[in-house]
Write a protein that binds this DNA or RNA. Sequence first.
DNA 1: CGCTATTGTGACAACGTTGTCCAAGCCATA
DNA 2: TATGGCTTGGACAACGTTGTCACAATAGCG
Lengths: 325, 325
Amino acid sequence: MADVADLAGVSLKTVSRVVNNAPHVQPELVERVLAAVSELGFRRNPLASSLRSGQTNATIGLLIEEIANPFYATIAGAAAEVARQHDTMLIIASSEEDPAREEQLLRDMCARRVDGLLVVPAGDDHSFLRAEIELGTPMVFLDRPAGGLLADTVLLDNRGGARAGVRRLVEAGHRRIGILLDSIGVYTMRERLDGAQDALAPAGVPYDTRLVRDGVRDPLAAARVVSELLEGPDPPTAFFSLNNRITLGVIEELHRRGSDAAVLGFDDFDVARLVPYPLTVIAYDTRELARTATELLFHRIEGDRSWPRTVVLPTELVARGAPPR
Amino acid sequence: MADVADLAGVSLKTVSRVVNNAPHVQPELVERVLAAVSELGFRRNPLASSLRSGQTNATIGLLIEEIANPFYATIAGAAAEVARQHDTMLIIASSEEDPAREEQLLRDMCARRVDGLLVVPAGDDHSFLRAEIELGTPMVFLDRPAGGLLADTVLLDNRGGARAGVRRLVEAGHRRIGILLDSIGVYTMRERLDGAQDALAPAGVPYDTRLVRDGVRDPLAAARVVSELLEGPDPPTAFFSLNNRITLGVIEELHRRGSDAAVLGFDDFDVARLVPYPLTVIAYDTRELARTATELLFHRIEGDRSWPRTVVLPTELVARGAPPR
DNA sequence: CGCTATTGTGACAACGTTGTCCAAGCCATA
DNA sequence: TATGGCTTGGACAACGTTGTCACAATAGCG
């Protein structure tokens, strides 16, 4: 900047004024400075700028579990889009579901003085962020609530969606429903399971824990569990899979066996149309989830200091897949 | 930091030494400083640090077309993983295939003094980056080559993969092959098309431009084009779709019609196993692509100043999908 | 013509760090 | 006791920028 000032024959401060479009600079000087800027290829260093001004550095952080997962990729895409509308860069970090790593990454982002933070929580204690929040870094949690912290949160209606889906199964006469889930340790899974129970009880269908299988991590495991349940005594006539990875495995196995069990799956997926089996999915708008959260974050960044909000977005039942063979 | 120094009763510089694990500080003082640090909740500001030291700021930038696209999401995931191994943060920005936006984002990232840049090019002129490269910001291009710039590049063997796939179709006796592509303006599409021609010519199969359809943007369009070709005179007996979005549409339409045309698709996709149609895909390792590029970038960051390299990764033919009904 | 507004410009310090350099203290050796 | 080396701590400037303030130049007024 000093070089530019020398070349243009003005003071360093005048250069600063020009590059910041500050008022009260003679048009002629502006011209000279701009000429010098482009001659020297000068570009303002936003880091130094935000160091001095203490103001925003036009960066927000997004913490997710795993970028390569389409759910989080969609979130990242929507967040990036909103960020871009606010001329803000997005830093993305993956916690890989590891609470220790999550804490380290969040601290690191705060140390970088991001303007705000979007967090899909992995751990269940986020009280270490309280100091940051009080220090003025706005944060919005999405998909899952923060642990031990009152903060803005945007969630899906996991429980309501599961309740509506299972109610439909029950109304269709199913009394034995196999339920497959990834991990009961995850908030969304617990909510979905609670929703299923909500729907069973009033219909007088007993909640049979032998039909509920935790720890189903991938399609292969799902296929195996379906086999077990179908070959056991008093097999289920319907399956409720609590995420789309599981749904794929369930369908594959049912298709292979030529079974006609009903399938209800939480999470939609793009190729669902192509799947050779009829199923009902509990769908939701992932982009909307992220968009809502990011917009809330920018409200906070722009100074909204009102009481923390919790927003719950609706889910929808959708019929998918090819009709049975 | 000054507050910490006061509380610990040492000089500011000593605090700096402690937080940087510098040698030659009395263990007792280290203790006092650390106590003060945790009491005051002090955290080093890496931005100010890198401003002063002029050294790395432990951040690399990744420019892709669109985060929500699984291909780019996978790239981002692999890049993030390698970055993490180097204790480096990853900034991700989407160009949305817009060259002007690409230029702006790349300039912005350079202004933020990232340690290096990973770029999936959207535009076809990147000469504006020459100044940055000379200024010492390492860059690696992946999936597509940079335009008008000699730089490190990691590519897939698009042409070879297409050649091998089409050769197999030809060897199976197909003489009329419908080819569907997204946009001839994209480098990878041109390469794949060239590969197809490479395989047709030596087998004496004419390259019939009426069978080549550009501008097929989504599965629906692909289905429509398949219909047209099949209903036209002298319909194709095989289809080569140049990306997986198109493959989905092609299969859906063929399945609907009960056709038994052969399908060759560029790009693998996770649910390919479930697809109710036999197909051959040209697969490749997206994670490996990104990993190779990111590791090359870190070599450069760590001081490798050798001549720019171009790495081409192989593709593989894989049989996928259910056997015909 | 002197007086005050108004506008344009620049000197200076500060943001939070760290590199450089010097000084003080200590010990060992001659 | 004097000399030298080694360890440790601190003063200072600098990284690239901007906020504050003061000053100079111009215009407007009686």
